[in-house]
Amino acid sequence: MILIRKVTSSPLTMVGLIIVLIILLTAAFAPLIATHDPTEPNILNKLQPPSAEHYFGTDEVGRDIFSRIVHGTRISLRIGLIVVLISFPIGTVLGAIAGYIGGRVDQTIMRITDIFLSFPGIILAMSIAAALGPSIENVVLALAATWWPWYTRIVRSSVLSIKNSEFIEASRALGANPFRILFKEVIPNSIAPATIQASLDLGFVILSAAGLSFIGLGAQPPSPEWGAMLSNSREILRDAWWAATFPGIAILITVLGFNLLGDGLNDVLDPKQR
């Protein structure tokens, strides 16, 4: 009840929660919300401005932009969730092992982590995606490969602060093996900062995926992915402002929603804020 009260007492957190819920519902019911087929061209209706028939207008081949954005919600949200679900467990386990065991194990894991962190994340993701070939699946792999080191550093730092706590010492005194202590005591009590970061990262992963699609390394036509829609609209921007404006707004609102929700979770889950 206290946690719920803290969440509901923050207007910005509630705004973020509402935005995220709308995004989730849009992705879940996209076929019912969309008014047209998102990939079917109609040359007779190309570059139509926003109207009652086409809420966000049409693109250069007559596809309904509103329907494409609605279906694109599924693609962007799936990319964000898969990347976080891959990188979060990997980074959490590696960070916990490094922090708890220490010594050469810690040094080896952290040096590998530092190698990945020494490159700008988006540049490394671009290199991996370019090497693997343009596709949504390869974008997911490229972003996951660049995201796990951040969770490793966060969890390791948190583990170092609790590894000598009294409840850990009590578990050792009772004869619990290191494996059980690591997964039953250490990780559950050090995962909160990484969870907060994961909620923030969902928006940034979606933004990064859109960036990779924008330069041609992600989703390919006729996929209704927001970054690809922005890329396709560059040549018609002067004649059809709506073709780029509405996908850009969709990215902006999505990133904003996850950021606001992540900040609210930080206030709720971070013990220093209590």
Rank of each mutant, 00 (worst) to 15 (best):
residue 95 G to F: 01
residue 53 E to H: 10
residue 106 D to S: 15
residue 151 Y to P: 00
residue 54 H to F: 01
residue 78 R to K: 14
residue 175 G to T: 13
residue 179 F to Y: 08
residue 111 R to K: 10
residue 182 L to D: 07
residue 125 A to S: 14
residue 165 S to D: 13
residue 126 M to E: 07
residue 157 S to R: 03
residue 43 I to P: 08
residue 127 S to K: 06
residue 177 N to A: 03
residue 147 W to T: 15
residue 86 I to C: 04
residue 161 S to H: 14
residue 106 D to F: 10
residue 145 A to D: 05
residue 167 F to L: 10
residue 51 S to N: 07
residue 170 A to I: 04
residue 61 V to H: 04
residue 42 N to Y: 05
residue 95 G to V: 04
residue 122 I to N: 00
residue 180 R to I: 13
residue 60 E to C: 06
residue 131 A to F: 11
residue 56 F to H: 02
residue 94 L to T: 03
residue 53 E to A: 15
residue 69 I to T: 03
residue 65 I to L: 00
residue 108 T to V: 12
residue 69 I to Y: 04
residue 103 G to M: 03
residue 116 F to T: 12
residue 61 V to F: 06
residue 151 Y to L: 05
residue 132 L to F: 11
residue 57 G to T: 03
residue 75 I to R: 08
residue 110 M to D: 15
residue 80 G to V: 01
residue 76 S to A: 04
residue 168 I to T: 08
residue 174 L to K: 05
residue 44 L to D: 12
residue 137 E to K: 13
residue 99 G to M: 00
residue 103 G to P: 08
residue 65 I to S: 03
residue 121 G to K: 02
residue 171 S to F: 09
residue 95 G to N: 00
residue 44 L to C: 04
residue 54 H to M: 01
residue 128 I to M: 03
residue 104 R to C: 09
residue 80 G to A: 02
residue 97 I to Y: 12
residue 102 G to V: 12
residue 96 A to H: 11
residue 60 E to R: 15
residue 92 T to M: 02
residue 141 L to A: 14
residue 114 D to P: 08
residue 184 K to D: 13
residue 77 L to K: 06
residue 126 M to V: 05
residue 129 A to S: 08
residue 43 I to N: 12
residue 145 A to K: 05
residue 169 E to L: 15
residue 173 A to R: 11
residue 130 A to N: 08
residue 105 V to W: 01
residue 114 D to G: 15
residue 158 S to G: 07
residue 118 S to Q: 14
residue 58 T to H: 08
residue 105 V to M: 04
residue 181 I to V: 01
residue 166 E to I: 12
residue 49 P to C: 08
residue 54 H to A: 00
residue 129 A to C: 12
residue 125 A to L: 12
residue 138 N to L: 00
residue 139 V to P: 03
residue 78 R to G: 13
residue 87 S to K: 12
residue 116 F to I: 13
residue 115 I to H: 01
residue 143 L to W: 00
residue 105 V to L: 10
residue 125 A to W: 13
residue 156 R to C: 11
residue 99 G to L: 14
residue 116 F to R: 14
residue 150 W to I: 15
residue 96 A to S: 11
residue 62 G to P: 10
residue 177 N to S: 14
residue 132 L to P: 04
residue 100 Y to K: 09
residue 74 R to W: 15
residue 140 V to H: 06
residue 171 S to Y: 10
residue 142 A to T: 08
residue 158 S to Q: 05
residue 75 I to E: 10
residue 140 V to S: 09
residue 165 S to L: 13
residue 135 S to Q: 05
residue 138 N to A: 04
residue 92 T to P: 00
residue 131 A to N: 07
residue 144 A to E: 06
residue 135 S to N: 06
residue 120 P to W: 02
residue 168 I to H: 04
residue 165 S to F: 06
residue 124 L to Q: 10
residue 105 V to A: 02
residue 71 H to P: 01
residue 164 N to S: 13
residue 119 F to R: 10
residue 112 I to K: 03
residue 95 G to E: 02
residue 52 A to D: 13
residue 149 P to C: 04
residue 159 V to Q: 15
residue 77 L to C: 01
residue 78 R to C: 02
residue 93 V to E: 11
residue 166 E to Y: 03
residue 92 T to G: 03
residue 52 A to N: 13
residue 64 D to G: 01
residue 108 T to R: 11
residue 139 V to Q: 06
residue 176 A to I: 03
residue 51 S to M: 12
residue 75 I to G: 02
residue 52 A to K: 15
residue 158 S to A: 14
residue 175 G to I: 05
